[in-house]
Computed example of a mutant assay.
Amino acid sequence: MNMLNFRNSIRLLLIVTLFLGTLTITSLGAIMSTANAQVNKPTIVLVHGAFAESSSWNGVLTKLIAKGYPTVAVANPLRGVKSDAAYVASTLKDIKGSIVLVGHSYGGAVITNAVNGNKNVKALVYVAGFAPDAGETAIELSGRYPGSTLGPKLAPPVELTDGGKDLYIQQDKFHAQFAADVPASDAQLMASTQRPITEAALNEASGAPAWKSTPSWFIYGDRDLNIPPAALSFMAKRAISKETVVVNGASHVVMVSHSDAVAKLIDRAATAP
């Protein structure tokens, strides 16, 4: 190799090295920017309701995670409003930064009682969820307006050793009652994996409601057969909902059948000033 070619090779090597270095710095900057954005986002904590479990949030979780939100889907014990709320409240204590608390169905009653003075909770999102006032119960609220057909679809109660009773929905009635707008094969899996709630939990009076001091958002389907849409509308208006979305044709599991609409509402609640 002559001296001219040698010098040209050195110049090319230097150019490539500088170019790669610039790319590395730029990539690192992008990564750091993304990381900072995620750190600044509130953590979304999702609480399922009766006859469901944490995987009922999978569609919503996928969309929230794609937006960079830290997420936690809590396994709701479904034993009683006060004890379930205390359990959820204990999980919130370890979360740094702001929190958006989301509850489905009976999980709405739980989040109503779980804030318990936690100043990090910036918003409540009720997904076909109960938003009881002090002294109200899930049973009373769902029966206040016509439209719920849940009672006759329940299986015979399972007697517990402490004298309580566990409630399930009959598996062959689950699709039509709970998840009519979900494919039958998916509804069968949900029926098989449903978690029971105690009869006492549905009859337990709620405590002081967090929605009186924490901004709330509501979304539900107009074909909900568990909680009458009229009851959900009443609770949303009473809580002075920042935004209420009614999904046409949606069943009680609106977060499964319309996960995009639910994720978008949670995002709006999380980004609200």
Score class of each variant (00 low, 15 high):
N2F: 08
M3Y: 12
L4P: 05
N5P: 07
N8E: 11
N8F: 14
S9K: 14
I10C: 08
R11K: 15
L13T: 14
L13W: 13
L14P: 06
L14S: 10
I15A: 12
V16P: 04
G21A: 05
I25Y: 08
L28H: 10
L28K: 09
I31W: 11
M32G: 13
S33A: 14
N40G: 11
P42H: 06
V47Q: 02
V47W: 00
H48L: 03
H48V: 04
G49F: 01
A50H: 00
S54E: 14
S56E: 12
S56V: 12
S56C: 11
L61M: 11
T62H: 15
K63N: 10
T71C: 12
V72F: 13
R79F: 09
K82P: 07
S83V: 11
S90P: 08
T91C: 08
T91P: 08
I95L: 06
S98N: 14
L101W: 02
V102L: 00
V102E: 00
S105R: 02
I111M: 05
N113A: 08
N118V: 07
K119E: 10
A123F: 04
V125P: 00
V127P: 03
A128W: 10
G135L: 07
I139G: 11
E140V: 12
S142T: 07
R144S: 09
P146F: 07
G147N: 03
S148L: 09
T149E: 12
L150M: 03
P152T: 02
K153H: 09
A155Y: 01
P156S: 06
V158T: 11
T161V: 13
D162P: 02
D162A: 03
G164W: 02
I169V: 15
Q170W: 03
A176R: 12
A176W: 14
Q177K: 14
Q177M: 15
A179W: 07
A180K: 13
A180Q: 14
D181E: 02
P183Q: 07
A184E: 14
S185G: 06
L189M: 13
S192W: 11
P196V: 00
T198V: 00
E199A: 11
L202E: 04
L202K: 02
L202T: 08
A208Y: 12
W211A: 03
K212W: 09
K212N: 14
I219L: 04
Y220V: 04
R223T: 15
N226Y: 02
I227F: 01
A231W: 04
M235S: 06
A236E: 00
R238I: 06
I240Q: 15
K242Q: 15
K242G: 10
V245I: 13
V245R: 10
G249S: 05
A250R: 08
S251F: 03
M255T: 05
S257Y: 05
L265V: 08
D267A: 06
A269G: 00
A269H: 00
T271F: 06
